[in-house]
């Protein structure tokens, strides 16, 4: 199995640790993961701002970089959702569709494709899991509190395999953190308030780390934690699953 590693642009630039952990974790699980060097971004920042018509360049690059893999895996629910829903190329519709359908968010790749049941990891801390909306409600990584349906959580089930981890329960299990792409600056007041409230829920339950499948949400919450002078840290879920 050959996996193309899709590293979202802001993870590449700001959070290489999350990407390294993703790569190491996949390698640990026996996957041949390759990082195509000419990748940039899925195009979501433009599309969610109403400029999907400007994403042709990103789409072509994505297709060029990832056409020749069995799977494409990314440590992000949001970017994967964008690829799943919006990757297209009028000149090669079928190819684009094939690529988008074999693009996986990391935790769902681990649970659904690799069917991971054990992990050699240990993380002896109190951890709060943030359900990033695009992964949860878009990719159905976890059950959603709005729906009357059986409970499950792909990232949650993986975290439970980690030795000595102490997972906290939140008052609001799946409320949005308020990052929302460009929303975080165009609606600064509401975005920041949402972030503060989310962080407060984790702090209230004694989290030492906040984790999740999307670094963008975590970056937003980290910004708030740092401004508040908190010692609580954010970590991408790959970094916890890869911790020993």
């Amino acid at each position: 199995m050959r996996v193309g590693l899709f590293i979202p642009c802001y993870v590449d630039q700001f959070y290489p640790g999350a990407a390294i952990a993703t790569l190491q974790l996949l390698e640990k699980l026996g996957v041949e993961a390759v990082y195509p060097k000419n990748q940039t971004c899925c195009g979501q920042p433009m599309a969610n701002s109403g400029f999907e018509h400007l994403t042709g360049g990103c789409n072509r690059l994505f297709i060029d970089n990832f056409a020749n893999f069995d799977y494409i895996v990314a440590p992000s629910g949001s970017c994967v959702l964008h690829i799943r829903e919006h990757l297209h190329d009028d000149k090669q519709t079928q190819l684009a569709n094939n690529i988008s359908q074999k693009t996986y968010e990391l935790t769902s790749f681990l649970t659904d494709v690799l069917k991971v049941e054990h992990l050699p990891s240990r993380f002896p801390y109190r951890v709060g899991m943030h359900q990033s909306c695009h992964g949860q409600r878009g990719l159905h990584l976890s059950s959603m509190t709005e729906l009357v349906a059986p409970a499950f959580s792909k990232p949650g089930s993986l975290l439970k395999m980690v030795k000595d981890i102490d997972l906290i329960e939140l008052d609001r299990k799946d409320e949005c953190c308020g990052f929302g792409g460009t929303f975080c600056v165009t609606e600064e007041a509401v975005s920041a308030k949402m972030g503060k409230d989310r962080v407060a829920d984790h702090l209230h339950h004694g989290a030492e780390y906040i984790t999740g499948v999307d670094m963008s949400c975590l970056m937003h919450m980290e910004g708030i934690l740092k401004r508040q002078g908190s010692k609580v840290k954010v970590l991408h879920i790959a970094e916890i699953l890869n911790a020993e």
Binding site: C133, R137, C176, G180, F183, T186, E187, V190, S191, M194
Partner: peptide, 8 residues
């Protein structure tokens, strides 16, 4: 644009 597209 007054939304994070959280989907709730």
């Amino acid at each position: 644009f007054a939304s994070t597209l959280c989907g709730s």
